[in-house]
């Protein structure tokens, strides 16, 4: 039977329901386990193969040489450019992976220059097997 106001019972039910949204800064929703958040480097594991630098679609990873003799390198992760695709984590050849991605999503800073992370480290030599 056709009658106007098919939606009215649904509308009345919702008057008495709690809001679906949460009070954000005070209350936070949980992100799932596999969420792609901020990229991190574990300098102890890095072998400086430059795969991440080569494959990053946003050119957010920069590796430069600090000292050739001491095998010292500098990696800069530009979080302002990062598009959170986790391609760098995927191509990382070390076991366990030197690049990792965590579930942190609150990355806002007053200036985009503060979102740069720098790591200066000595290259890990390949273990002889």
């Amino acid at each position: 039977m056709k009658k106007a106001g098919f939606f009215i019972p649904e509308l009345i039910i919702h008057v008495f329901k709690k809001p679906v949204t949460v009070d954000y800064p005070f209350e936070k929703l949980e992100v799932p386990k596999g969420f792609r958040g901020t990229v991190n480097l574990n300098p102890q594991l890095c072998i400086v193969c430059r795969s991440c630098e080569r494959d990053c679609p946003a050119e957010a990873i920069e590796i430069s040489v600090v000292s050739e003799q001491e095998k010292k390198f500098k990696m800069v992760i530009h979080n302002d450019r990062c598009i959170h695709c986790a391609q760098c984590v995927e191509v990382c050849p070390t076991q366990p992976k030197a690049m990792s991605i965590n579930t942190k999503f609150e990355m806002a800073e007053p200036s985009r220059w503060n979102m740069k992370f720098e790591y200066v480290y000595t290259r890990k030599l390949k273990e002889k097997t």
Binding site: V31, G34, F35, R36, H84, C85, A86
Partner: peptide, 12 residues
């Protein structure tokens, strides 16, 4: 989608 891929919009 977020549960499976890790993001709501860009599933990658």
């Amino acid at each position: 989608l977020e549960e499976i891929s890790g993001n709501r919009v860009h599933y990658a």
